[in-house]
Structure formats: C-alpha cells, structure tokens
C-alpha cells in the first residue's frame, strides 16, 4: 500500500504532452532536438508548435473535468501510524502530489509555416542592408527560424522557394524583378562559360556572372547567386555546393512573366504566345516549353487564346472563386481549372468530389469539361 | 519565440529503453486520476496528517492499494471514502514537462505509460 500526500503549495509549471510514436522516436534519438516555438516574438502570442529538425506538431489543449494528480515517491522520515482499520498490508511507500493538471497537450503533425511577415523585399539596390541593421526587426537567419512556427528543414525549404537571401547576415526576399534579372544574367553567364546546367557549383557560377562586371555597382553577390540556384535548382545529392538547374521551373518563371507582359490587357493566340515566350529566354537557351506548363496562370476567354490570370486577384471564398472563374470562362477543361481552386480544398477531398460540390462535370470525348451548376 | 526542450533527466531512461510497467515510473513518478474534485486543506494544521519533508509542507490524504495481478486499485480518501479503480494503460504516452519561467528552461522529466484511474462513485468505508 502507498501513503498518498499532497504538497500544500501546488506547482503550476508542469504540463502533460501527448507523445506519438514519431515524437518518441525523436526523443530517443540522442542527436535530435525538440523545441517549442511560436510565430513572432513573445508578446505576439501565436499558436505554439513543437518542432524537431524536420517536422512540426501543433499543440492542442484538451481540457477535462477529472482531477489528475502528479506524484513523486519519497522516503518518509516518520513512522507512519499503522492503519489497521482497512485490513490492508501496512504502507510500504509514500508518494507526494506535486502538481495537478486539468488538461493535456495533444500533438498533431502539421506543415510548418515560415514567418516572413517582417522580412524586407530587396530589389537589388545598394542601400540594403542599412547600417547596423537599423529598422530591421529580423536580424539573422537564427532570428527568422526562432520566430517561425516551423521546423528548420521546412523553414529552409520554404525560404529557398521564396527567393530568400541573406545579405551581410540580414535575411531579405528578392523581388520578382530582381530575381528575373539575376536569373537571366546567371543563365547567360553560365552558357557563355559552358557550365553544366546539371552541375552548377556556386563558386564557378558566381565567377561566371561576375566576369567583366564592375564590382562597385554589382548587385549579383554570391548570396544572390546562391538564392538563384536554390530557387531554380535542386541540390545535387551528397554535394553541398552543387545544384542541378530545374529547367521546367525556369521555363515556367519566364512563361508567367511573358503572360504578364503579353497577355494582360487582351488575350493572345497560343502559337503566337509560344513564340513570344521563347523570345524572352537568353539566346540559345535549351528550355522546352508547352502551354500546359502554365496552367493556373491563364484562362481562355474565347476558344483557345490565352489571357493572364494571377490567383491573387481571385476571391478567397471558394463559391465566389468558382463564380468568378465561370464568369471569365464559361467552360473549363478540368486540368486548366484545378490549379485555380485546389488551394481552397482545405478538407483534402478527392479532386473530383471537390469540383462536384461547386460545379458541373461532364465528359466530352477524352476531355472532362467543368462548368457552373 | 523558441525554446529547447531539455531531455537531460530522461537520458538514462531512453538509452536503456526502460519504461513504466506498473503504478510508478522508473524515475518514481505516478499519475493518479479521479472523476471528481479532490478537496484537500491548503493550510497547515497541527495534526498528525501534516508533515514537512525537505522544507515542503505535505498533507497525507489517502491510502492506495494496487493488486498487480488484476490491475485493480483501491483508494481510501480521508477517513470516510473508499474508491475502486484500476491501473490503466494510456492510449498515448504522456511526457511530463516542467516550464521553469524563472530560469527560462523547459525540461521533459518523465514519461507516463500508465495511470491509476478512479471513475466510480466513492463508497463509504464499512
């Protein structure tokens, strides 16, 4: 039998956390680390997550109506008087309650989100960063990681995709225009020096870009070139310094810019657009292009001609978005419309099921046509 | 903001793959749960049930008996109540974490795989 005691002053600093099998694995790995994190700074009071190096779990507080007492065994100095009334073996140990809890923290694996709220956009001008990082709330990558509800691996992946760059230690995001210029210059220089697009090394690529550039006014620093390689390429396995250019990503980037330039005010026939698109690449660039690569960036107001349609101009309410899309184009090829609406499929329904909730679907030959209900 | 979770206290436990198999963990902790409110005095009294250990004031409030072969448990509360319950395996193990605001440290101190649960109405002591 155990004597049960409780401390008169309860410690309120203890919590109970659900340890899923994945979390237990992380705990058991001596090289792993776990961190509690939240977006922003202490005062912002964002939602707390738990992160390993690679994964993010959202904490959910589950209150309950029972009394839970957390107790610790101790050795009593006293001779406890024998309780003979209950006919039980006399107590052999003592436990003292040191905390009570009325809730548990459940843990749900989620996608971590990089917090870029306070990160400045850099367009290549020479006045970034300001001296001493004045007016820059996020002063280092460590700061950025600490203020994001996101694991390190997920953070760095998103950072690379966004065109994040670290200049003199200060994180910034390169503007679209600056990314375009830097990409263009990088491609031209790499081709001029006959560099291999499948194995672009940072040092070589930087040297190629900076050959014959006046260093005083050169915005294409090694950090910028690294950002270009991260955004438009994939790290070669087992080689920390080498990237394979993702030709499709590059082609799509040029294609979106071309749509914006040539198909904003009015639509353009696809054949003509392909020629225009190709013309925006550096001369002799080896990139294959197809209209289908730009799905999610254009609609077809009449027949087959294309017109630029950026998602950020569409309503974020799913019903209204479908309404707008059908107003712009009464019938859609399913493959053309899906990229415009899939981000609003928050419940993760099968795409057919999702579309049928808001639209009509019918087969015409090999195609699937989507129109309004 | 971001803070590391220290697992220093768990190290030996995790390395040896030992974990709780009965009422208390290898590190000496126990989780007790009652379906109800447990009222206990919060102020010291000159009564044999009040003791001081390592400068902590304690009140003795109950007696717990576990029958390990059947996982049954009996809890005597005060002088008047008797509760019947059991040792229950948790669906998901629970980490015991201390958030020490003073030192700015977060520490996982133990892992519970079982709790002692009392969900029936208290019976009078016969």
């Amino acid at each position: 039998s155990l004597n049960l005691h409780e401390r008169l002053s309860i410690d309120r600093s203890f919590r109970l956390l659900h340890l899923t099998p994945e979390l237990l694995e992380v705990l058991k790995d001596p090289n792993s680390k776990l961190q509690f994190k939240a977006a922003g700074n202490d005062e912002d009071d964002g939602d707390v997550v738990l992160c390993s190096r690679e994964k993010t779990w959202l904490l959910r507080q589950k209150n309950h109506s029972n009394t839970t007492m957390l107790m610790h065994e101790f050795t009593s100095e006293q001779e406890t008087p024998l309780e003979t009334t209950f006919g039980l073996p006399s107590p052999m140990s003592d436990f003292a309650g040191f905390a009570r809890t009325t809730f548990e923290y459940e843990t749900k694996e989620v996608s971590g989100i990089l917090n870029v709220e306070s990160i400045p956009i850099h367009n290549g001008s020479s006045d970034f960063p300001p001296a001493d990082g004045r007016d820059l709330p996020v002063k280092s990558m460590d700061d950025l990681l600490a203020s994001s509800a996101c694991s390190e691996k997920e953070c760095l992946l998103q950072w690379g995709q966004l065109g994040g760059c670290v200049i003199k230690g200060y994180p910034c995001i390169l503007s679209s225009d600056f990314l375009t210029k830097a990409l263009h210059v990088t491609l031209m220089s790499a081709m001029a020096e006959s560099l291999n697009f499948s194995r672009l090394r940072l040092g070589e690529t930087f040297d190629a870009v900076n050959k014959d550039i006046d260093q005083e006014s050169n915005p294409y620093t090694i950090d910028v070139i690294k950002t270009i390689l991260e955004k438009y390429g994939e790290k070669v396995k087992d080689d920390d310094d080498c990237w394979q250019l993702n030709q499709k990503k590059v082609a799509v980037w040029y294609g979106i810019r071309a749509l914006k330039k040539y198909a904003s005010q009015s639509s353009i026939p696809p054949a003509e657009f392909l020629i225009k698109w190709k013309s925006t690449f550096p001369p002799y660039a080896p990139f294959d292009i197809e209209i289908e690569m730009l799905r999610g960036w254009f609609f077809r107001p009449t027949g087959s001609s294309l017109q630029y349609l950026p998602k950020n101009t569409l309503p974020s309410d799913i019903k209204e978005r479908f309404m707008m899309l059908f107003k712009l184009q009464s019938q859609w090829d399913m493959d053309d419309i899906v990229p415009f609406v899939e981000e609003l499929n928050s419940k993760g329904l099968k795409i057919d099921v999702f579309l049928m909730k808001y639209a009509r679907k019918r087969r015409v030959g090999k195609k699937v046509i989507i129109s309004s209900r | 903001p971001s803070i590391n979770v220290s697992k220093r206290q768990l190290q030996t436990l995790l390395q040896s793959d030992q974990h709780q198999t009965s009422v208390s963990t290898p590190l000496g902790n126990m989780m007790l749960e009652i379906q109800g409110d447990l009222e206990l005095p919060r102020q010291w009294s000159e009564d044999q049930r009040f003791t001081t250990i390592d400068k902590e004031q304690l009140v003795r409030w109950g007696l717990l008996h576990i029958d390990p072969s059947r996982n049954n448990a009996i809890l005597f509360v005060g002088r008047k109540q008797r509760l019947l319950g059991s040792l229950v395996k948790l669906d998901t193990p629970l980490g015991l974490i201390k958030f020490n605001q003073q030192d700015g440290i977060v520490e996982m101190q133990d892992i519970f795989y079982y709790k002692v649960l009392f969900k029936s109405r208290p019976l009078p002591i016969m």
Binding site: D45, R60 | D37
Partner: peptide, 28 residues
C-alpha cells in the same frame, strides 16, 4: 473533524473541447 479531505464525485467525464495553445499560457 475540521480538516476536510473529500472527493466530490462527478457523474460524467467531459473532454471534448480543444483549443490552440498560446506562448504566454505555457508559462503561466
């Protein structure tokens, strides 16, 4: 016996509500 040591039983058990956790509540 002025010292009250007592379980006030609750008929049911409820734990349905879940909410996100704020940074400040970790420390309070």
């Amino acid at each position: 016996d002025e010292i009250r040591i007592w379980v006030r039983y609750k008929e049911g058990f409820s734990d349905a509500v879940r909410k996100n956790v704020s940074w400040s509540s970790l420390w309070s």
